[in-house]
Amino acid sequence: MMIEGLTNTPTGPERLKAYEDNWQTEMGAWFPGERVVLRGKDVFSELSNQSWMEFMVFAITGRDMSEFARVIEAMWLISSSFPDPRLWNNRVAALAGTARSTTALAAAAGNAVSEASIYGLRTSRGALDFLQRTEKKLNEGATLEDIIKKELHTYRAIYGYGRPLINIDERIKPLLKFAYSAGYKKNTLLILAFKIHDYFQTTKYKFQINISAIVAAISGDYGLTLNEFNDLAALSFSGGIFPCYIDARNNPEGSLFPLGVERILSTDQTTRTWKSEE
């Protein structure tokens, strides 16, 4: 929001001076020993019956979206909660477990690493971004083929299509089944997402739609902005991260995928001696 009295403040130190000990907000506050307010609502009396995800959706978007909150839970459970320490972000948490670090440090590192490019938060944000941009360009008269060719030419890949390790995405069917059962009705972005998939099958690329595009399309169809979608997804890998940390913590120290010296493949075989400059 724009802050009354501060909207026209100049830049530079004058701006900082205007904000000194002066944080005006509509987001929320704690009234010590009394109450908590979030976005104009009393947390203990008005929000305490909400589920955790309903509360998070309200905290991040400011909107009451109980149906979508239920769909997000399914998105997290089905698409990003694989308790497998071979997956890169989970492995970070598992390494924290095997190295006997703490729960919060493991969770923080695992979630931070989930902001990745070949999977995770960059792909899901990128998928929604691409779908929204494509929808806009189609409305402006561009053809799907031109849009996709230009995107591939510029970025060489399109978020939401194709997948590392394997091409098929086993998560799509169960997630769609749940979303429909929760009340989601197929809307413009999901229809577009599948149109893009169908287009790829007519080209040499044969990229398959992956779960990022599905999750992004459904979220976009519920009216989420890019930032809202990204903020809500930030902890979505937690369901896989915690089990991997716990499992490694419960096994002998250092036992997770130990690496011997021979597991290092050095491409530099030279040996030389350091000569300090005089």
């Binding site: 011997g260 290092i264 050095s266 530099d268």
Partner: peptide, 25 residues
């Protein structure tokens, strides 16, 4: 066995322990 490929680092193992480096370059 999968390996970590690196230009930065090279190791030689201790004779009694393949998981410990005797020399690191």
């Amino acid at each position: 066995l999968e390996q970590i490929t690196t230009k930065i680092w090279r190791e030689e193992a201790e004779p009694d322990n393949p998981f410990a480096a005797a020399k690191s370059y």
